[in-house]
């Protein structure tokens, strides 16, 4: 990939992205990753309450939400923010392998393909963001950590390296 990655089409404003995670390094890493692309304008919040306040100040296009949060949990935050139409779409990123969006979350537009289990490849997250916001094609996709070309597979971490470690 040698084409310029950092140019946004003049007609499209940057995607307003809010990262909700109580772990500071995770917020910092994801912000650093998305800030590198002009297609994104990134904010972060350490709790659901903080995120609601941030959204009250300015609505977002998309929130990346951790499930286990102090105070209100990720699901409560999503339902609240969706109910008040503060954000168009939500992606879940969580350390729990068992996470499956229930009825309430699905009603808020969060399907299995919107769940990313940590550790995951941020490039897949970016692809899904472009996809749900209908921006695909306007930008280069950032390079992935994982080499395969499979689309985001929902509630699975980036890849199972066991496949790559076949004994002879």
């Amino acid at each position: 990939m040698t084409s310029p990655l950092c140019h946004t089409s003049a007609h499209e404003p940057p995607i307003d992205l809010l990262i909700v995670d109580d772990e500071e390094p995770i917020r910092r890493m994801l912000m650093a990753y998305f800030e590198d692309f002009d297609a994104f304008s990134v904010r972060a919040a350490a709790s659901g309450e903080e995120a609601l306040a941030a959204l009250a100040a300015r609505h977002a296009d998309l929130c990346v939400v951790d499930m286990r949060l102090p105070g209100m949990n990720g699901e409560q935050f999503i339902l609240e923010a969706a109910g008040r139409a503060m954000c168009r779409h939500f992606l879940v990123h969580t350390g729990s392998v068992n996470m499956k969006p229930g009825q309430a979350l699905r009603a808020a537009g969060v399907g299995p393909e919107d769940v990313f289990v940590k550790p995951h490849d941020a490039a897949r997250l970016a692809e899904r963001i472009y996809q749900v916001l209908g921006r695909r094609g306007a930008h280069d996709t950032p390079p992935r950590v994982t080499g395969d070309t499979e689309p985001a597979r929902g509630a699975h971490p980036a890849d199972a390296p066991a496949n790559r470690r076949n004994p002879r």
């Binding site: 995770i26 650093a32 990753y33 990123h93 729990s96 550790p119 941020a122 390079p143």
Partner: peptide, 19 residues
């Protein structure tokens, strides 16, 4: 859950450094 979170940091940090 507790292990996946730090692993997420490790992976993302390495990805950011590469980028």
């Amino acid at each position: 859950h507790e292990i996946n979170n730090p692993l997420g940091i490790v992976l993302q940090a390495a990805q950011n450094m590469a980028q």
